[in-house]
């Protein structure tokens, strides 16, 4: 029988330590490897200097969308649900935002309107899953197709994206949000990602929402018996993911200076990848917003850093392999936990 007064063995403590801090170790490892590797094959980086200011700013700028998304997505997965439509929601938001901007709507209203679109998209997901009781995977596959379809429809025939041309011109400010450095050379999009992440950490640790998400994913029956409205919790989480997808879409759209209806393709995979990498259990209940954020940094450093070592066409392979490895290690860790 286990005795609670017994002090944990050194091995257990090491295991515990690794489990809690491995993600930071991996980040350090990735940074060290990329800093010492020969990076002069690619013009993005100065010779042999991964940690140059220019490079760090570059990576953080392109990472803004996934950094924005990781936190809310983590909370949703902790509650035991999934959203495969985030990529499409992001594309649709990017298109809406660009469409508003190109038609003369100023920054703030365009920004707010797009966020509202995000609320709507998340609410639709929540409605399908909770009220119509469609399995989360299928419900969000439907909206994956739907949101992407609408994004494509919003772009005129014969044009690939919303961009300057045909008498309309993107306003000058359009780029600023995603590209222009405001603090430490980093653009608003990045700082919004940081704010969102802090908000999600607060939601997880200091608000009922985070606790109820964990209870809903960990033991739904216990949550219900304790009087928690699990349906409401899940709908709120879907809406949060929708908002973050909209923010990610704005960031991407601003960075690329266009509203591309395919710009979010594959984002759901990246989101699942970083969340699993951060140790969130796919069975629900467990996970940390901050670790997913670190996971996103790792993946972005890897993918961007990798471009300097191997050609771009290695990217899909690496991401796919990483996803499988993350899923496998995640599983092994959680199994050990339940056995002990």
């Amino acid at each position: 029988m286990t005795d609670l007064t017994q002090s944990p063995q050194f091995g257990d403590r090491l295991k515990r330590f690794l489990k809690d801090y491995y993600i930071y170790l991996v980040l350090i490892l990735v940074v060290v490897v990329l800093s010492t590797a020969n990076l002069d094959k690619f013009p993005l980086f100065e010779r042999g200097n991964f940690l140059s200011e220019r490079n760090i700013i570059n990576i953080l700028r392109v990472s803004a969308p996934i950094l924005t998304l990781a936190g809310a997505f983590t909370l949703l997965m902790i509650s035991g649900y999934i959203d495969l439509s985030v990529g499409s929601a992001m594309s649709l938001s990017a298109v809406v935002y660009a469409l508003l901007a190109i038609n003369g709507v100023p920054f703030v209203p365009a920004f707010l309107a797009t966020v509202l679109v995000g609320v709507l998209l998340g609410a639709i997901n929540g409605f399908l899953v909770i009220r119509l009781k469609i399995t989360p995977v299928i419900a969000t596959l439907i909206t994956l197709s739907l949101y992407k379809g609408i994004a494509l429809l919003l772009v005129e025939d014969g044009v690939s994206a919303i961009k300057s041309g045909g008498g309309l011109k993107m306003p000058g400010w359009f780029n600023d949000y995603g590209r222009d450095g405001v603090f430490f050379g980093l653009p608003w999009a990045f700082w919004v990602a940081i704010l969102v992440t802090i908000a999600m950490i607060v939601a997880q640790d200091r608000m009922k929402l985070g606790k109820y998400a964990a209870a809903t994913g960990g033991n739904p029956m216990a949550a219900k018996l304790s009087g928690i409205d699990t349906a409401r919790t899940v709908i709120i989480l879907y809406v949060l993911v929708g908002i973050c997808a909209a923010l990610a879409g704005i960031a991407r759209s601003s960075f690329m200076s266009l509203g591309d209806p395919l710009s979010g393709d594959g984002m759901e995979l990246t989101a699942i990848l970083v969340v699993l990498l951060g140790g969130t259990a796919f069975s629900g209940g467990e996970g940390r917003v901050l670790k997913s954020f670190i996971g996103a940094l790792i993946i972005m450093s890897l993918t961007v850093g990798m471009l300097t070592l191997v050609p771009a066409y290695f990217q899909t392979l690496v991401v796919g392999t990483a996803l499988l490895l993350a899923a496998a290690s995640n599983h092994l860790v959680s199994r050990k936990d339940s056995e002990s």
Binding site: V137, L269, L276, Y313, F314, L317, V318, V319, G320, L323
Partner: peptide
């Protein structure tokens, strides 16, 4: 669902390489 999303990318990734 997670496994086959991963192998979807794995297979296509090898093809791309």
């Amino acid at each position: 669902i997670i496994v086959t999303l991963g192998t979807m990318m794995l297979a296509r990734g090898i093809a791309q390489v």
